[in-house]
Design a protein around this nucleic acid. Sequence first.
RNA 1: CGGGACGUAGCGCAGCUUGGUAGCGCACCUCGCUUGGGACGAGGGGGUCGCAGGUUCAAAUCCUGUCGUCCCGACCA
Length: 574
Amino acid sequence: MKMSKLFVQTLREDPSDAEVVSHKLLARAGYIRKLTPGIYNFLPLMWRVLKKVETIVREEMDRAGAQELLMPFVQPKELWEESGRWEVYGKELMRMKDRHDRDMCLGPTHEEVITSVARDGLKSYKQLPVNLYQIQSKFRDEVRPRYGLLRGREFIMKDAYSFDLDEKGLDKEYENMAQAYKRIFDRCGLDTKMVQSDSGAIGGSVSHEFMVITDTDAGENDVFYCNSCDYSANSNHAISKLPTAVVDGGEYFTQKEIVDTPNTHSIEDLSEFLKIPSTLILKTLVYIVDKSPVLALIRADKTVEETKLMNAAGGIEIRIATSAEIAELMEQNGFCAVPGFIGPMKGVKTVIDETARDMKNFVVGINQTDKHMVGANLEDLGLEDIKFTDIRLVDAGDFCPVCGKPLFVTKGIEVGNIFKLGTKYSKPMNAVYTDADGKNVPYVMGCYGIGISRTAAAAVEAHHDEHGIKWPISIAPYHVVVVPVSTNDETQMSCAEKIYKELIEAGVEAVIDDRDERAGVKFKDADLIGFPFRITAGKTLSEGLVEFKVRETGEVKNLTPEDAVKEVIQAVLG
RNA sequence: CGGGACGUAGCGCAGCUUGGUAGCGCACCUCGCUUGGGACGAGGGGGUCGCAGGUUCAAAUCCUGUCGUCCCGACCA
């Protein structure tokens, strides 16, 4: 490819809306261009990268025994009603009507469609197991798309679905996919961690995410991990053993009583006012889960993990209540208290965290402003039935649930996930096979996703420097750029052209920078775009040598043109 | 959903307070010069100033509405 004809416009400045490095670099280097929020054009360089990632994914999925197909992007409401998700999916599901006024949606994921495909085709136990996948654009109408390709609304995803006779078959396929994923990300030059995760709106029981570990904002997930064993989990799923703390207020409060606690609107205020550790306070938080209030009771030094609470409350959408909603809730239950003094109350759905189990003689809000009860115990709270659930966010330094060593936390970009779905879709959608005894049995399903475009962006997050992108060879848009420093110098030009031709003939993806630009411009662009190798025909040519530069390491050496070509061929084609 | 900010050329921005021929840098075109890390000089093309109303002799500028975009927050009681 001639650089002069390559469709790429590099920018000197970051686009004003880009926050994370992958967004800035991909935009500056001419890989992507925003059409509207969360929706991007994948320009020729980007498309080459995406195709490389796709090819790796395809090869490994095929090798793992999966079969590729392509399902429709537009889907009818009826299918989503069968699974029950039309009602529960929320605003992320982009809904629309066709000309006949029929409800349709853009596919955010394809469990419904694949299940319908399977039930039409997979009738006998003799046909199972099967794993089907596709690579396709998905649309999720994110509340707040950001970080460029990392959280877009329209994005490219590989989604695979497996159909097995039973749980045992699913377990085997799940492991098979985990291995395939590891190979895929390794080949993409990404170091990933497989972590336990909540299974979220997709549903199911067991799930893992593949995280690219990063210490920047681009990592939207917190990952807790143990250095002593292999435990690691997304914060929405992580559990831990707590460090010991004071949980019996016996030495502070010898009897149960109601005390004045004026203006103690925060736990900090309250613990300071009463001169007690916050581990002696049971705090009450009001959440709205699927439009209904839910009280969360948790030891005050700890934080509620919203996904855990949402699951405990059996909902699919959660947010903290506004002060207006709290006021309304107070009024409905005959109380009048402002945040800071909220406590348990009858008749409102309540979830109690495990941390409350051992608490004795503690402090708790009683729904009266400027008052708290001290020396309280759980049975004093008038709760109908007391059950403990883990709804706590793990803190770094808590102890590993497996081996007991302290946990560490880091940020991660989720590039893939695998779920055991079981019969969550096959049952309601009546997707069954006939077994050897002639009985109809629902398939046991799994689903496995990889964000293709997100993987490419994550690779930029993981491989860049202040000059630009440093693509891993396997997914670079081109392998090498050949730079004649001066296009007017016939010796340089003919040398560059010869090298370029030899590389192309050997099967290397090469670009020749034939632009009539100064060397500095060509070098800056080469670094920004991120060609893994650069061969420069310039001043060293007087000694019969060209410069060979490795983008990843910055290593530079002068070689004969023949050796430079060999070096690239060796690195690229093995 | 709440708050804030911003919409002026492909990109990044100034101009608006105090109304009077629409500017700068990058990019683009031409010529010259230059050629190993985003040179320089001269010339040039490109914008109904988001949109719609209003005020005015006159609106990018003032007023109203509207659409869009970005950021922050969404209460740990």
